[in-house]
């Protein structure tokens, strides 16, 4: 210890000792952190016969996939469903974060893959699972709290892809459209090594949409898309999944001039428009039944023509978000509109 002149106000000894210890501690940590590096990891060699390495780009980030993924992990339901829709669940080592149920048609394939967590797995669990490809629907998956940033993942040799609809920078997100959904599916199929699966998927959905356009079940009908809320309704607006579904069946959205996929509407506009049909989004946090009961119980809203006629259409909320199930949502709405027309 270095001797120092005694200061007039003593009692500083304890304090400065602590301080010195703290500084030494911090310095030690700094030195240690720069000592040995990360141990060498085994690199998977690309099979010369296939297309790898391939590159996938979204949200301004390009990730290189060195070899066909065998231990991919999907975060968020949207990403999981894309892989299931492509029939490529054999590439998955795990899934995480469901918003609601996986549809019946994919249930068996989904159940065969381990579920890592109800929501996001911890960053430790993701490291321990040692994935070779990470695919997420929301930018929140690629934060240090969860998987780490995509750049960090590149450094660790883990390829990653973020749905363009989930870009953190909203200006990088595409306008919601069926084309944009299919583009994402193309990229994922390419990353997982089966581009043909995406082509087949696109052809099937395009054929379904063509049929809906011919049927035009919503022609001449005005629609109020009721998503949730009571004091003010959250409504399907003009720039997202609900609008795409209504366009596909040629119906008119009374809130088409509102921005975004969903937005806050107001009851006065609903009453003024007096829509022919009401579409209810059915979700665990706001069921269609609740919303129907609310409309029926309200002295003014119960007088709406659509409520009096029970011109109700119900679709699962997850079929109204821009993703692989949006076409299913459009098919469902179309079928229910035809049924309503037949009963009239």
């Amino acid at each position: 210890m270095v001797s120092r002149p005694v200061r007039p106000f003593t009692h500083r000894n304890t304090a400065s000792k602590t301080v010195r210890a703290a500084v030494l501690g911090a310095a030690a940590v700094l030195v240690l952190a720069s000592c040995a590096g990360e141990p060498e990891s085994e690199k998977k060699a690309a099979d010369p016969g296939d297309a790898y390495p391939v590159e996938v780009t979204s949200c301004g980030h390009t990730s290189t996939i060195e070899a066909r993924p065998t231990k991919a992990i999907t975060l968020n339901q949207g990403a999981t469903e894309v892989v299931l829709a492509l029939g490529l669940s054999d590439r998955l080592a795990g899934t995480a974060y469901l918003d609601d149920e996986i549809p019946e048609k994919w249930r068996a394939a989904y159940d065969a893959v381990p579920v890592l967590s109800d929501e996001y797995p911890t960053n430790e669990e993701l490291v321990a699972a040692d994935p070779d490809f990470l695919y997420a629907s929301y930018g929140s998956a690629f934060t240090p709290e969860v998987a780490g940033t995509q750049t960090d993942l590149d450094e660790k040799g883990t390829a990653s892809y973020l749905s363009p609809f989930g870009c953190e920078d909203k200006t990088q997100r595409p306008e919601p459209s069926f084309e944009a959904v299919w583009d994402e599916i193309d990229a994922v199929a390419k990353a997982l090594g089966d581009p043909a699966a995406a082509e087949q998927f696109r052809d099937t959905q395009q054929a379904q949409l063509d049929e809906l356009a011919t049927t035009a079940a919503g022609e001449g009908l005005t629609v109020f898309w009721y998503d949730g809320g009571d004091k003010t309704p959250t409504v399907g607006a003009g720039g997202g999944g609900p609008q795409l579904v209504l366009d596909a069946v040629k119906a008119t959205n009374i809130f088409a001039d509102l921005d975004g996929g969903w937005n806050e509407g107001n009851w006065e506009s609903v009453i003024a428009a007096d829509p022919d049909v009401i579409v209810f989004a059915d979700a665990a946090w706001s069921t269609a039944e609740e919303k129907i009961a609310y409309l029926r119980g309200d002295p003014v809203l119960s007088q709406l023509t659509a409520v009096q006629d029970e011109a109700f259409v119900t679709i699962p909320f997850s079929e109204s978000t821009p993703g692989v199930r949006l076409v299913d949502g459009a098919v469902g709405v179309s079928e229910q509109l035809e049924k309503l027309a037949a009963n009239r």
Binding site: E145, E168, R173
Partner: peptide
């Protein structure tokens, strides 16, 4: 969903 100071995300 805006970028800030040339950064995005977290």
């Amino acid at each position: 969903g805006v970028s800030f100071a040339g950064l995005a995300g977290s």
